[in-house]
Amino acid sequence: MLCFFAMGFVDLVGTASNYVQKDLSLTDSQANLFPSLVFFWFLIFSVPTGLLMNRIGRKNTVLVSLAVTLTSLVIPVFADSFTAMLLAFSFLGIGNAIMQTSLNPLVSNLMSSDHLASTLTFGQFVKAIASFLAPILAAWGATTLMPTLGMNWKVLFPIYAAVCTITIAMLGATPIEEEQPDKASSVTDCIRLLGRPFILLCFLGIMCHVGIDVGTNTTAPKILIERLGMTLETAGFATGVYFIFRTAGCFLGSFILRSCSARKFFTVSVVMMLLAMIILFSASSLYLIYAAIAMIGFGNSNIFPVVFAQALNNSPKEKNEVSGLMIMGLFGGTIFPLAMGFASDILGGQAGAIAVMTIGAAYLLLYSARIKK
């Protein structure tokens, strides 16, 4: 569970990019390069991680991911230039790509098949706690510690680095008897599956889901700053609102999907996001904006597991290749923030970013018609 908590460190990129933008006076497109860079590495490292697991084992692969993540958290403590932050976020993305691919298979060595799904669901809940804490720790450092101890929002990096160090020590000391490695997959094996129409639709669905997730994480505080003139420290709570309702959605979704068809629940979730984005285009009330952000958080919380399960069920004989391909779809976290940044710069406001996210939600609504009941 500590590893799942460390997996959630990747979501600090939305909060951190806003503070870096303020510190270095960056444009929206420059600031959105940070979350884009983080998720770019999922495209590169998802399949090679599968090969690495077959060579050194799942536990050692997770330890490698934690070591890379720890490096990413240490860099901002000693340097805060644009280049240093690009390097830090690159290591954060690489470490998380390796961890996302290797941690779930490692858990399967510890739990019986009857309890695996519930354990992974609880892991996502723990991961969301780290995501939720990031904006709170950053605001605490900027508002409370800055006047008294001279520290700023970057206090979240040494705190998370300490947790990461403890996680490495505890996992390293835990004996785990692993299964025989699966047959290795290649990049070619994964890419070839995109020739199947439904797998391609699922891949694009994962990209849209992650794009909306990272996009809301990054853009929500900017909307409050633009519409209500709030400070970044105060507006950062909008990211917390998103993660609170995404966490609640994950928890409730695990029960709802047992009694409700995947297509119906998926469609309701996407419609909720579309309504929220319509509200965000013109909302100028604090509570109305919070409500819309909450709706996106709840609606987007169960998109990934439904799409992922649909893809696996469509190709049961190639689950390894499909899994690698779906993780590669997290590359959407690179494309969406870049497009949102450019759209915001062109339109001179966050309406441009909201429009890009709306396109992603509209695609998911079209995809819902292809979901098997």
Results as ranks from 00 to 15, higher is better:
residue 295 M to F: 06
residue 288 L to K: 02
residue 280 L to N: 06
residue 264 K to S: 12
residue 336 F to H: 02
residue 321 E to F: 09
residue 343 A to I: 02
residue 296 I to T: 10
residue 299 G to M: 01
residue 272 M to I: 12
residue 307 V to M: 05
residue 274 L to D: 11
residue 260 C to Q: 07
residue 342 F to Q: 14
residue 316 P to R: 00
residue 274 L to V: 14
residue 287 Y to Q: 13
residue 317 K to C: 10
residue 291 A to K: 04
residue 318 E to I: 12
residue 291 A to N: 04
residue 347 L to V: 12
residue 352 G to D: 08
residue 340 M to K: 00
residue 345 D to P: 04
residue 287 Y to V: 03
residue 334 T to L: 13
residue 286 L to K: 13
residue 355 A to H: 01
residue 358 T to P: 05
residue 274 L to H: 07
residue 267 T to L: 05
residue 280 L to Y: 12
residue 297 G to H: 09
residue 345 D to W: 08
residue 280 L to E: 12
residue 320 N to W: 08
residue 329 G to H: 07
residue 322 V to G: 01
residue 273 M to F: 09
residue 327 I to V: 15
residue 312 L to E: 09
residue 264 K to L: 14
residue 321 E to D: 13
residue 352 G to S: 10
residue 301 S to H: 00
residue 344 S to F: 00
residue 341 G to A: 03
residue 282 S to Y: 08
residue 347 L to F: 11
residue 312 L to Y: 06
residue 289 I to F: 04
residue 260 C to T: 14
residue 284 S to M: 05
residue 311 A to W: 08
residue 352 G to V: 04
residue 295 M to T: 00
residue 356 V to Y: 00
residue 357 M to H: 01
residue 262 A to M: 07
residue 290 Y to V: 01
residue 268 V to P: 03
residue 352 G to W: 04
residue 359 I to T: 06
residue 358 T to F: 14
residue 286 L to Q: 08
residue 328 M to T: 06
residue 314 N to C: 13
residue 359 I to L: 14
residue 299 G to C: 01
residue 333 G to E: 02
residue 341 G to Q: 02
residue 291 A to I: 03
residue 354 I to L: 06
residue 317 K to Y: 12
residue 345 D to M: 02
residue 307 V to T: 09
residue 263 R to E: 12
residue 331 F to K: 09
residue 285 S to E: 10
residue 329 G to S: 10
residue 361 A to T: 09
residue 265 F to A: 14
residue 332 G to C: 06
residue 342 F to H: 13
residue 262 A to I: 03
residue 318 E to F: 11
residue 262 A to W: 11
residue 282 S to L: 09
residue 313 N to L: 04
residue 358 T to M: 11
residue 319 K to N: 12
residue 281 F to I: 15
residue 288 L to Q: 04
residue 303 I to R: 12
residue 298 F to G: 02
residue 317 K to V: 10
residue 318 E to M: 15
residue 350 Q to A: 09
residue 318 E to S: 15
